[in-house]
Amino acid sequence: MSGIALSRLAQERKAWRKDHPFGFVAVPTKNPDGTMNLMNWECAIPGKKGTPWEGGLFKLRMLFKDDYPSSPPKCKFEPPLFHPNVYPSGTVCLSILEEDKDWRPAITIKQILLGIQELLNEPNIQDPAQAEAYTIYCQNRVEYEKRVRAQAKKFAPS
Rank of each mutant, 00 (worst) to 15 (best):
Q126S: 13
E132I: 06
W16A: 05
F77Y: 03
M62E: 02
P84G: 03
K65S: 13
A133Y: 06
A133E: 01
E99V: 11
N124H: 09
R17D: 00
E118H: 12
T91I: 14
A131R: 05
E143P: 05
K101W: 08
L113P: 04
Y144P: 04
Y134L: 04
A152M: 04
F64R: 01
P73H: 02
P84I: 14
I4N: 06
C138G: 08
R141S: 08
A131I: 04
L38M: 07
G23F: 03
Q11T: 14
E122L: 10
E12C: 00
T51K: 05
C93F: 00
A156C: 10
E54H: 08
C75I: 15
K49L: 06
S7T: 11
P73M: 15
L114M: 13
D19M: 08
W103I: 03
A44Q: 02
M1G: 07
E132C: 09
I96G: 06
A5C: 15
L119P: 01
R13P: 02
K18W: 02
K48D: 03
K48Y: 02
A44R: 02
S71Y: 11
P52A: 14
P21H: 05
E145T: 13
T135L: 12
A152E: 03
R61W: 08
P52D: 11
R8N: 09
Q111T: 13
L113V: 12
A44Y: 15
H20M: 00
S7G: 08
N40V: 12
M1Y: 07
A129S: 05
F82S: 00
M1C: 08
S158D: 04
L120F: 06
L120T: 07
K65L: 14
E42Q: 09
P28T: 01
S89I: 14
A5G: 14
C93H: 04
P21V: 00
P72F: 00
P46I: 09
L114P: 14
N121S: 12
A10W: 07
C138D: 09
A44T: 09
A5I: 15
D100I: 15
P128L: 00
K154S: 14
N40G: 04
A15I: 10
A10Q: 10
S95F: 00
T108R: 15
S158Y: 02
L60H: 05
E132K: 07
W41Q: 05
E78V: 15
K101Y: 15
W103Q: 00
G47E: 02
R141D: 10
R13M: 02
G50H: 11
I112L: 15
S158M: 14
A5M: 13
P28W: 00
Q139Y: 14
R147T: 14
S158C: 08
L38D: 01
G50D: 06
E78T: 10
T108V: 15
L60F: 15
K146H: 14
P72L: 01
I4H: 10
G90K: 02
H20F: 04
N121V: 13
G34L: 06
S95L: 04
E122V: 13
I107E: 11
A129W: 00
L38E: 07
Y134S: 11
P128W: 04
P80Y: 14
N31M: 13
P46Q: 04
K49Q: 10
M1A: 07
V25Y: 08
L113G: 04
T91K: 05
E118F: 15
V86N: 00
K153V: 04
N140R: 10
G47N: 03
E122F: 11
A129M: 01
Y68I: 02
Q11G: 08
N40S: 14
P105K: 01
T135N: 07
E54T: 10
Q139V: 03
K14W: 07
E143L: 10
C138I: 13
N121I: 09
N121Y: 09
K74C: 15
S89R: 05
I107T: 10
H83E: 00
L113A: 13
A129G: 04
V86P: 02
E118W: 08
A10S: 10
L94P: 00
A44M: 14
G3V: 10
F77M: 04
E12L: 04
G47A: 04
S95M: 01
L63A: 11
R147E: 10
S89P: 10
R104Q: 04
K154E: 11
H20P: 00
A10I: 06
P73T: 10
Q151G: 06
C75P: 15
L120M: 11
L94S: 07
L97G: 06
T135G: 06
A131D: 08
N124Q: 00
V27N: 08
Y87L: 02
P32A: 13
F155L: 10
M62K: 05
V142W: 10
W41E: 08
M36H: 05
D100C: 05
E143Y: 10
S7D: 06
K76F: 15
W103V: 00
W16S: 05
L38K: 00
P84F: 02
T35N: 03
F77Q: 00
Q151M: 02
L6S: 07
Q11C: 14
R147H: 08
P52Y: 11
K76T: 15
K48R: 13
G50A: 11
D102S: 14
P84Y: 03
S70D: 05
K59D: 08
H20Y: 03
K48N: 10
A129R: 02
L119H: 07
L81M: 11
D19N: 07
L6F: 10
I109S: 04
V25Q: 12
M36R: 10
K30L: 06
G47W: 08
F58P: 06
N140W: 01
R147M: 12
W16Q: 04
L119V: 07
F155W: 01
S2C: 15
Q111Y: 15
V27Q: 02
K76V: 13
P69D: 03
S158G: 06
Q151S: 03
K14D: 04
P79E: 14
D33E: 07
L113H: 03
F22G: 07
D33T: 04
V92E: 00
Y137V: 00
D66V: 07
L119G: 02
I109H: 04
K59T: 12
V25A: 10
L97N: 01
R149G: 06
I136V: 10
A129Y: 05
E12M: 05
R13Y: 02
T29R: 14
R149Y: 08
L120V: 06
D33K: 02
M62Y: 06
C138K: 14
L6Q: 11
R13Q: 07
K146Y: 12
M1E: 06
V148E: 02
Q139A: 10
K14L: 09
I125E: 06
F22I: 01
K146N: 11
I107C: 15
P69L: 02
P79W: 14
E143A: 12
P79C: 13
V86T: 00
G90W: 01
Q111I: 14
L120E: 02
I45Q: 03
K30P: 09
K101A: 15
Q151R: 00
F82L: 05
T91A: 15
K14T: 07
V142T: 13
F64P: 06
N37H: 12
V148W: 03
K146Q: 09
R17S: 07
L57W: 08
E118M: 10
I107F: 11
K48M: 10
F64W: 06
P46F: 05
V142I: 13
V25F: 11
V142E: 15
R17F: 01
P128A: 13
P52E: 14
R104F: 02
Q111F: 15
L57N: 09
P128F: 01
R13D: 03
A152L: 01
R61M: 10
H83D: 04
A156K: 05
M39I: 07
N140T: 03
L6W: 09
I112P: 02
F58Q: 06
A131P: 10
F155S: 10
F22M: 01
R147P: 03
I136S: 12
A106F: 01
R104H: 01
S70H: 07
K30T: 07
Q130V: 05
C93E: 06
F82R: 00
P123D: 01
K153L: 11
D33N: 07
G34S: 06
A150D: 13
F155G: 06
T91R: 09
L57P: 05
F58C: 05
F24R: 02
G56P: 09
L113F: 06
I4M: 13
Y68W: 06
N40W: 05
I125P: 07
M1Q: 06
P84Q: 01
E99F: 09
P69N: 01
I96P: 01
T91F: 14
Q117C: 12
A129Q: 04
R61G: 09
D127K: 00
P80H: 12
K18D: 03
P73N: 02
